[in-house]
Write a protein that binds this DNA or RNA. Structure first.
Lengths: 195, 195
DNA sequence: ATTACCCTAACGAACGTTTGTTTATTATAT
DNA sequence: ATATAATAAACAAACGTTCGTTAGGGTAAT
């Protein structure tokens, strides 16, 4: 009965900002837009956040952490490369679809981070991609996957998935699991020797 | 000796703007940024263009036309669906790599078009995607391609290609043709029954 | 039970700067 | 001499952010 409606203003600001950043882009969203969308004055935002960029930082690095954590769990398990790739894709898509707005912002607004944060962000992204690269290389060594440019293939794979948030409609017929099934089927059966 | 350095100021403005829009985004690029990058004053831009948005419109609809024209040539030819898909992808990638900066702007800045232009843009994009969808459906009828959600597969395919401009380096080892070969190999051999 | 104090969250007003664009004027090239 | 292209100066509007203040509620001392 003490605190009920006030879950957390800061969190509400970030959630509302996420939706506006997705719809209009970070640079094209003003603090007055955001404040009006919440129902307060622009100045009031600064009782809860330090700056506009802090909001973007929170969104981007929260997503980055989610992606990393979900992948690291899979890395430890013992299984064949094609199974591992499939699990990695499923986990990636699960993170992606849990908050589609945040994912969209994560993938297309990160470049507006200031330099110090940008550097960290790109390092993390590269590390993440390389975990996928390693799965493909292992799969090739195991004789499961064709010879290929692993980095190139990973970028193609992740690209085809990452832009789902911009067109995926949850009320549509495909569940996250269906999507993962579809994508990995196309990619894995295209990568496997013979089949 | 008549007109030499002045190839066309308007075209130069659009080219320079393309590079800035790619690097910083449309909303985060000011007319003073653009003017300084060219070496003139911001006011001087308006001797050649009507508005900032006109630049974006020119970039977006020029690219859209290029994509359409290249695909329409292929549509008329008679060949099997997998051949046709491959040719369509190659042609798509050729347009894409001809001007990587313009492509990047085309794919991520179109949402800043004003409503009237936005509507046209989305209609064109949807028509373009549907041409690919039709190829997949035909391929299924011919018994070449698996049963699948054709629209979903097209979006995945185009996504994996369309974001190449953001990471593709022309000085790298892969030519546009190599890329088309790689992408279509992964997709087609994953879509084909048996193989 | 009242007073005094502090804290949080919100406010209106204003800060200095930057935005896209217009105007009136000057320089350049044909 | 005429048309074209560049300019400096200025415009209103919007930008992110800071300011001083206020209202309300809790806490502690009287």
């Amino acid at each position: 009965m003490i605190t009920k409606t006030k879950v957390n203003r800061k969190q509400q600001i970030i959630e509302k900002a996420t939706h506006l950043f997705q719809k209009q882009g970070y640079a094209a969203t003003s603090m007055r837009d955001l404040a009006g969308y919440i129902g307060i004055e622009a100045a009031s935002l600064y009782s809860h956040i330090k700056s506009k960029e802090e909001i973007l930082q929170t969104i981007c690095f929260q997503m980055a952490n989610d992606f990393f954590e979900s992948l690291e769990k899979i890395e430890l398990e013992e299984m064949s490369a094609d199974e591992k790739l499939k699990k990695a894709v499923v986990s990636h898509i699960k993170v992606l679809t849990k908050d589609r707005a945040a994912s969209a912002v994560f993938f297309s607004e990160w470049r507006h981070l200031s330099e110090a944060y940008l550097k960290d962000f790109l390092t993390m992204r590269n590390n993440y991609e390389n975990k996928f690269v390693q799965i493909l290389i292992d799969g090739h060594k195991e004789g499961i996957f064709k010879k290929m440019d692993a980095k190139f293939t990973v970028l193609a794979l992740l690209s085809s998935i990452n832009w789902m948030p911009s067109w995926y409609k949850p009320e549509g017929k495909l569940s996250p699991e269906d999507i993962a099934e579809n994508v990995t089927d196309v990619f894995i059966n295209g990568l496997k020797i013979r089949s």
